[in-house]
Amino acid sequence: MKRVVSVSLGSSRRDHKVQVALFGEEFEISRQGTDGNFDQAIALLQELDGKVDAIGLGGIDVYLYAGKTRYVVQDGLKLMQAVHKTPVVDGSGLKSTLERETVYFLRQNTDLLPPKTKVLMVSAVDRFGMAEAFTSLDCEVTYGDLIFSAGIPYPISTLEELEEIAHKTLPDMCQLPFHMIYPTGKKQEVQDEEKIKKYGHYYLEAQVIAGDFHLIRRYLPLLKGQTIVTNTTTTEDVAFLREKGAGYLVTTTPEFQGRSFGTNVIEAIMVVLLQKPWPEITPDDYLNLLKQLDLKPRILKLN
């Protein structure tokens, strides 16, 4: 039995454990949230180090991308550096491959993403591959990085401007405590009503809302049948989106026993299957494995 554990800064209410068989190998996959408690996350990572086969870091990014430039989130790096023996990943290695493929899949296999679709990405620097894919398919994309991570009501409409602003600001912003730019712990369980009033219209102007689920959830107004493209969702999240009037839910990661795990979890599983050190794994390795595993996005009609 291979053990993969996702250690998350998110709420412990989302903890989950499943067993699945992949390529004839039994995996126990679990998620342990630390309710935004950074020290607890460090302690848990140290405890697991050397005792499990791979670790995913959830509720935080270590690497953000804009164009070809990679920015390192210092809090994420501290978590990663707490682990010395077990492979540890944040999902960013796989995201670029998996999430691009999801966007292409939607164009090729559904009518959810025709050309000129208005897309709101609540944040793009944490999934630049997805942003590039939407743009390459002639979607009209609004990048909400400043709106939803910095509270600045300035929609970015080109990847070039996103890269330019990222270049000026991310080297320093990545040094701030992560909770200042992303909802962690209990903040993931509640919506920010004041900001929903201010920024909810960006959701309503879009046909597709894409990106990190916790950001989407925190500022989500009542929708009118929009499609949500995201990663981690629980059964409760699906019910929440249905109540809020979303039309479809597309999750980039596959469902295991009722929930889609984070990209960090899937990447951790892949690292185990590939049996290569993480720095040596290429996007093609992930792509080939995705094909062999026949992992496809999950598409759920909600309303």
Partner: peptide, 18 residues
């Protein structure tokens, strides 16, 4: 507020950032 701190940092970086 944290939002104000982030906003001030952002303004400064947009003016002086590389």
């Amino acid at each position: 507020t944290e939002d104000d701190v982030v906003r001030l940092d952002f303004i400064s970086l947009m003016i002086w950032g590389e």
